[in-house]
Design a protein around this nucleic acid. Sequence first.
RNA 1: CGGGGCGUAGCUCAGUCUGGUUAGAGCGCCUGGUUUGGGACCAGGAGGCCGUAGGUUCGAAUCCUAUCGCCCCGACCA
Length: 606
Amino acid sequence: MRWSQFFITTTKETPKDATAPSHQLMLRTGMIRQLAAGIYSYLPLGYRSLRKVEEIVRDEMNRAGAIELHMPVLHPIELWHQTNRVEAMGDVLLRLGGPEGDWRSQTVLGPTHEEVITEIARAYLGSYKQLPINLYQIQVKFRGEARPKSGVLRTREFLMKDAYSFHDSVESLDEGYKKMYAAYCRIFARCGLPYVAVEAESGPIGGDASHEFMVLTDAGEDYVALTEDGSYAANTERAVCAPLPAETAEMKALEEVHTPGQRTIDEVTAFLKLTPDRMIKTLIYTGTLTAGAEASKKAKPQEMTFVVLVRGDHEVNENKLNRVAGARLELATPAVIQALTGAEVGFAGPHSLKGTPGADFRLIVDQAVSVMQNGATGGNRTDYHVINVNPGRDFAVTGEGVVTADVRTVVDGDLAASGNGSPIRLRKAIEIGHVFKLGTKYSTSMKSHYLDKNGKSHPHIMGCYGIGLTRTLAAALEAYHDENGAVWPMSIAPFEVLIVSLDPNEPEVISTAQRLHDELSAAGVDVLWDDRDERAGFKFKDADLIGVPLRITVGRKSLADGVVELKRRSSPDVEKVNPAEAGAKAIAMVGEAKAALMAKADKAVR
RNA sequence: CGGGGCGUAGCUCAGUCUGGUUAGAGCGCCUGGUUUGGGACCAGGAGGCCGUAGGUUCGAAUCCUAUCGCCCCGACCA
């Protein structure tokens, strides 16, 4: 491909709206063009890379035995009512609109395809003989993101690979899940990405039922907890750590202190001259019990007040908390708080609440609080706090209506839960893939059943597996760029080799470049020839910007010395090569780079 | 949805506070010429309802009101 006949729109200046490196580079290289918030065109250069990611994904999915199909973007909303997800998705579910009663008002744009695939399974996968099966597609998804951001990292329209597996046993699901997990490792390894698979929040099934594939970058929106020894990795939504050791100070007498108007941890610690880790944060929640919810759907939801204690420098982890409580908790209203504490909001403490645990409220003590001594907390009296509060002495940590558990989010410096003493580090990351055991959530609500060999009917046991393709592309750029531009891995670079011909009026330069171009092209290498009549510096800058991994420079000067120059984008080293051998050499280098990535894939399962 | 910022040429911006010729610059684009190994130079040229709609005024990019859009932080994220 000649540059002059392709469509590349590089710019010297960085568009002001872009802050994330991947966004800036995709705009500057002309990979994408924004049409509206979170809505982008993929221009030819960007589309080439996207297609390469797509082909790797397709290749590995097929290799793992999955079967490709294609489902519609337009979904009847009725399907979403069947799984109760119209409410659950809220504004994320985009509707076509139109007058009431019109078909448009009954149609939504698909944000994901569990419903559609389950409708297909319901119709056709009626026998255990057809199971297991894994069906996937590569499709555009639409989501009403409240705040699209960082270019293509978070958009309202994006390309996704979504796969759904159907099984007749939990063991079969486990197997299918492992296959997908392995396929994902291979996919991201082949893309050359520095990914890490982490335990993720798993919803109703629990256990190890979900993993996210993350790329560590500051442009990410998630935090992952990684132990320094590499033995543990989890999303902070889920991450656990070793219990903190008991403090050993001598217990002092409880003492009330006047703290007029000091409500927040920051205010109180400043006022009392304490560090936040000496504070007990007392949070009051109202929860609706979910335990046994399946059976008691008709029963009135039972409301309960929960008092939750975490250390002042810690954050409550809502996922852990809801699990421990067996309820979905929401922060209580001021009226509830005032009734329980006898004070205004901001002065709650566990030591003198109105009522008894078990009967009037439940007390959930975070493990880190349970080992504190002489802590400070609210006085249950407006404008007062208490100091020298001791768990066990001043409030119960076990017993009727009281539970001590891990309900906080891990922090940097916590130690591995395994007890090997390795410290946990928190890193920002972007999620590019997610594998998930769904169980029978959708097959039950949509009545998608199969018959076992005894003729008995069961709901399909399902798994689902997603990769954000456009996001993967952006994540690769986040990981691989320098001050001059993109530095693409060979496997997903828009072109594999860039030939830069200088001196357009030198016949030998042009003929040499042409011959190299044809040779590489004939060998199946994706080669771009910058044949433009521009100055050398200009072309080199563009070359670095678009980040093609291998560059061959053909110019009058070097030809006079009987050589052309070979340079990797990732290295400053220049290799001088005989023009007759340069083609073969470049072909070999491309092959080696791809083989290296494939070799990584072969040992990628981790 | 809350907070902040910004809408002037394809891109980056000046001009807006303090209203006053025909609205500017650089990059990019077109013509011609000189250049030619790390984003050259000269000359000429095309390109704008100053986001949109009202209002104030003799006169609005500039002041007022409304509205739309975009970006960032937060909330949210099957």
